[in-house]
């Protein structure tokens, strides 16, 4: 069972309280009508799927109900950090250094 820290409730809680919501920081095209098919494909369907650190969204469904972001290592499933939606992307090398 994953233990996940909700940045709003400031509590570390079991996975079953949360739902996963896919890759984080995916930005919707600003001007849909001038967006090409390839750009739509990238926005709708292409995801990073890395073996390693992954920026992703979670929702504290059975708690505060809010979305937040996380960085998780997809090999160990260990969370490197969680942070509020809208906050900037944390720097990966700092996170990895801190996790050591």
């Amino acid at each position: 069972m994953l233990l996940i820290h909700c940045p709003y409730c400031d509590e570390t809680l079991p996975e079953v309280e949360f739902t996963y919501a896919g890759q984080a920081h995916v930005v919707r095209p600003a001007d849909p009508s001038s967006t090409s098919d390839s750009e739509w494909e990238a926005f709708l369907f292409l995801r990073e799927n890395p073996k390693g650190a992954h920026y992703e969204r979670w929702r504290h469904l059975h708690g505060c109900g809010r979305f937040f972001n996380a960085v998780r290592d997809t090999v160990s499933d260990r969370f490197l950090t969680t942070y509020a939606a809208g906050a900037p992307r944390p720097d990966l090398s700092d996170l990895i250094e801190r996790a050591k």
Binding site: M1, E15, V16, T19, Y20, N49, E56, T74, S76, D77
Partner: peptide, 13 residues
């Protein structure tokens, strides 16, 4: 499982 992973393990819930 709900989250992407390469852990070949998965969660108990």
């Amino acid at each position: 499982d709900q989250y992407t992973s390469y852990s070949q393990r998965g969660g108990l819930p």
